[in-house]
């Protein structure tokens, strides 16, 4: 192809770039700058002269920022692997049945096409301590009712409930992607394996997973980014208090959001901006790390 259609290419890009310049890059740049402002007061559009790194140290020393890091990482590191493994199993199961494949696939996809807040509210009712379905279900196994999302729920219980909701919510997409990835695997690999009378587990381990590895990598990166940005699921399940006890389940985005919402206070908007920039750095680091670590193990 020629290289001289520079200006024409920019012309095609213009609508997207102009909109993004105004509504993405400018606010991003602005947030970056604001994260160094001293005593910024957006209501008056005033600040103290000079730039400072203090906002970052303030954020890092904030109790709830530490709590947010702990929650976000726990959620990401546990829910992402579980949902990937589970959806992989489901996809393999789907692929191995002779009938009703489309039916199951459709059902499993439903969580993807629903309003997150609406379903989250349904989960909150299900996890209700007194008249929730989940406790009722556990009682059939002789488990006494426990508080999952209320004020007396321990951190672990709240995290469990959050994980269940997060995994439920994220399975749909992964199942579909893995299932269609599986159908693209050449049948002869399996036939060869069957001749060698390899066990199903061996086939799964030695053929399915390696052949799907680029897809698994892609899905784990995008899920990781999604999990690090968790916010809506917490709002849906716990409401504005962000936990059974206030802010027990706070995440980095929720932290950013709280300080952003309180922007009328002196300096708070800068703290929110600093928190967001830190999250950006973390996400970037994880994506890079994931790509590097899996480079050896992924079979393209």
């Amino acid at each position: 192809m020629e290289t001289k259609n520079n200006w024409r290419a920019w012309l095609y890009l213009a609508p997207m770039l102009i909109l993004m310049a105004v509504f993405t890059f400018y606010p991003l740049f602005n947030a970056f700058i604001i994260s160094f402002y001293k005593d910024y007061q957006p209501l008056l559009n005033q600040r103290a002269p000079g730039m400072t790194l203090d906002n970052y140290s303030i954020v890092v020393n904030n109790y709830f920022f530490k709590q947010a890091l702990k929650n976000t990482f726990t959620l990401a590191f546990i829910s992402v692997p579980i949902s990937i493994v589970l959806s992989l199993f489901i996809a393999v199961a789907l692929n191995s049945i002779p009938r009703l494949k489309a039916f199951f696939q459709t059902i499993f996809f439903l969580p993807y096409v629903t309003n997150g807040i609406a379903v989250g509210m349904a989960f909150a009712v299900i996890f209700h301590r007194n008249y929730g379905l989940f406790n009722q279900f556990l009682s059939w196994f002789g488990v006494a009712p426990v508080d999952w999302i209320g004020s007396t729920a321990t951190w672990g219980k709240q995290m469990t409930a959050l994980m269940i909701f997060t995994i439920w919510d994220s399975l749909a997409f992964k199942i579909l992607v893995f299932a269609s990835g599986l159908t693209n695997i050449d049948k002869q690999y399996y036939d060869a394996a069957r001749i060698d009378s390899a066990s199903k587990w061996t086939i799964f381990k030695r053929i399915t997973v390696p052949l799907l590895s680029p897809l698994i990598l892609y899905i784990s990166i995008t899920s990781m980014i999604g999990a690090l940005k968790a916010y809506n699921s917490i709002i849906a399940l716990f409401g504005e208090s962000l936990g059974g006890r206030p802010r027990d389940m706070i995440t980095i985005v929720a932290f950013v959001y709280q300080y952003r919402a309180d922007y009328a206070n002196i300096g708070f908007y800068s703290y929110a901006a600093a928190g967001a920039i830190i999250l950006f750095m973390i996400t970037l680091a994880f994506t890079g790390l994931q790509t590097i670590v899996s480079r050896k193990r992924v079979h393209y």
Binding site: T3, N6, L17, P27, A31, V256
Partner: peptide, 28 residues
């Protein structure tokens, strides 16, 4: 279309997907 800086622009655009949109709100 081939044009100068296409890779750079592309990478920058992809990177924006990792930013929590929350932070855009007030400026927007």
């Amino acid at each position: 279309l081939r044009f100068k800086g296409s890779n750079l622009v592309f990478v920058i655009l992809i990177a924006t997907m990792m930013i929590p949109g929350e932070i855009f709100i007030l400026t927007n």
